[in-house]
Simulated assay, not measured.
Amino acid sequence: MRTEGRKAPDAGSPWDEIIPLLWMGGHYYRNPEGTRVPAVAGGGFDLVVSLYLREGHGPSGDVEHQCVEIPDGPLTAAQIEAVCQTAESVVESIRSGRRVLVRCHSGYNRSGLVIAQALVHLGYSTKDAIFLVRYRRSKWALNNSLFVDYLNTGLDVARLLTGLES
């Protein structure tokens, strides 16, 4: 599920390298001719994390594929926990020298949340992690202000606070 209304344009590339071995992308992008095309993850990665699923977008059968569907909107405590676990998995893969792609529908918010959290686990400040995601992927990355609030609060605290509402 995507939250409509932020009017972010499609990315100009299927995915972008955020730091060595860590890529961020979506399921669609605009090619140089301006046509919206599917971004199909083939065999160029060791791990593909999909936060949004679309049939026919890969990865190929020999690539590890983790599917963690979360909405591009308010998250439950369980969904925030899934983001934390996914970010930890991404970090473990990077530390093992594996090429990782984290992707969602447009490659801006859900993938940005997981990647920013992974960068925090790797020692980046939250501010630097958010900056790096936006600088390397797009100024439209993390345009979901709620996700930025989660990161600034700290996902562990955000999970606990969200759990109080249940």
Rank of each mutant, 00 (worst) to 15 (best):
R95C: 03
D46Y: 02
V114P: 04
R98G: 07
A158T: 06
L151Y: 05
A116Y: 08
A11Y: 01
D156L: 06
P74F: 04
S145Q: 13
A158C: 08
H105W: 12
L113K: 08
G58D: 09
G112W: 02
N109K: 13
R2K: 12
T76M: 05
Y124A: 08
R159W: 04
S166P: 00
S89I: 01
V63T: 09
E81G: 00
S166H: 11
R54P: 00
P59F: 08
M24L: 15
L47T: 01
I130Q: 12
T153L: 14
A8V: 07
P71T: 04
L151R: 09
S60Y: 06
Y150L: 13
S89G: 04
G73T: 04
Y135L: 14
G26L: 07
V133E: 12
N109V: 05
V157W: 01
R98P: 00
Y28K: 12
D46R: 02
V91W: 07
R159Y: 08
L122E: 03
Y150F: 14
L53F: 10
P71S: 09
G12C: 07
R2T: 01
S60K: 10
A78H: 02
L142N: 10
A118N: 09
A87Q: 09
P9G: 15
V91Q: 12
H65P: 06
P71C: 09
I19W: 00
L132F: 01
V120Q: 05
F45N: 03
L53K: 06
H57S: 13
L47E: 03
L142H: 06
L113H: 11
A129E: 07
S13Y: 11
V120N: 01
A87M: 05
A129W: 06
V120E: 07
P9N: 15
T76D: 03
D149Y: 05
L161H: 04
R99L: 00
T35W: 08
S106Q: 10
R36P: 04
G154C: 01
R54M: 10
P74C: 06
K127M: 12
G26Q: 05
R30A: 03
R134Y: 03
D62S: 11
W23N: 10
V49E: 11
E88I: 00
Q66N: 12
V148Q: 14
S50V: 04
C84D: 00
T76P: 02
D16N: 15
H121Y: 14
V157E: 14
A118P: 08
K7I: 10
L122T: 02
F147W: 08
A11G: 01
G73E: 11
V100F: 06
V63E: 10
V91I: 05
I115M: 08
V40M: 13
A158F: 08
G44R: 15
P20A: 10
H65E: 14
V63Q: 04
K139L: 12
K139M: 13
A141H: 12
R98Y: 07
T35G: 09
R103K: 15
R95I: 05
F45W: 10
